[in-house]
Design a protein around this nucleic acid. Sequence first.
DNA 1: CTAAAATCCTGGTGGC
DNA 2: TGCCACCAGGATTTTA
Length: 271
Amino acid sequence: MPELPEVETIVRALRAPLIGQRIIDVWNDWPRIINRPPLPELRARIAGCHIEAINRRGKYLAFDLSCGETLVFHLKMSGQLLVVDPAEPVDHHVHTVFYLANGQELRFRDIRKFGRVYLVRDPAEVFAELGPEPLSDDFSSQWLCENIARRKRLLKPLLIDQTFIAGIGNIYADEALHRAGLRPDRQAHTLTIAECQALHQGIRTSLELGVINEGASITTSYRKPDGGEGAMQEDLLVYGRTGEPCYRCGQPIERIVLGARSTHFCPGCQY
DNA sequence: CTAAAATCCTGGTGGC
DNA sequence: TGCCACCAGGATTTTA
């Protein structure tokens, strides 16, 4: 499940093989994956455009194109982007292909078909509701403390709300809360200044560690574009460690469900 | 505003 | 070994 660190890793890996390349055409065999515009219009508008830059916003990838368009991807649960030689056999989970002028193909593979593709004139059309980037200067400890105080919600659902902060998903929310020593079912507005400062630090630390480790390859879902695995799964403190001893206090990690999401925390050192 | 539930998907898993 | 119910989960939509 690609979250901010996984998407950042993918963005960095795609720059070398894609920047400067020209897109010739698009193929798709599962229409829902193309969010907008409809495939015939997408093909017409994208043909001949060069890829000038590749960036990340939250969990989205944004390709700036020379023709004034932005090609946006969201990988959701199982999406993968691969740049390959056309001789490479096409896996049956590939449902969208961008053909490049240099002969290579950008393939969007997605087992669960939740991923989406957008082509827009103005990326704000897609990004309008997103909260701040947690690794940018916009996301200060002061901003978090001010905004968390007026939210009457549980911490875990709030952290994965993309309109509050962009890019945090189930794994890094649990990791950030553990590092901050905060229970995921705490009410957001009950945090003291010291606690929300700890949360700010916990968010920063877990996301930065995720980027350094090039993401978490928990099952078979997330892979780097070169097929390799990230290393973050080895540095997870609570996620997926139900029943195993907490590294900090030794108590068994507990698993509960919050907002229909599996949530892992240590009952011994998170308050 | 907050939240719960349903929706979209399929591979993997646990039970028998 | 085979079969099947069930789970995972990001974001959106619908319904309280």
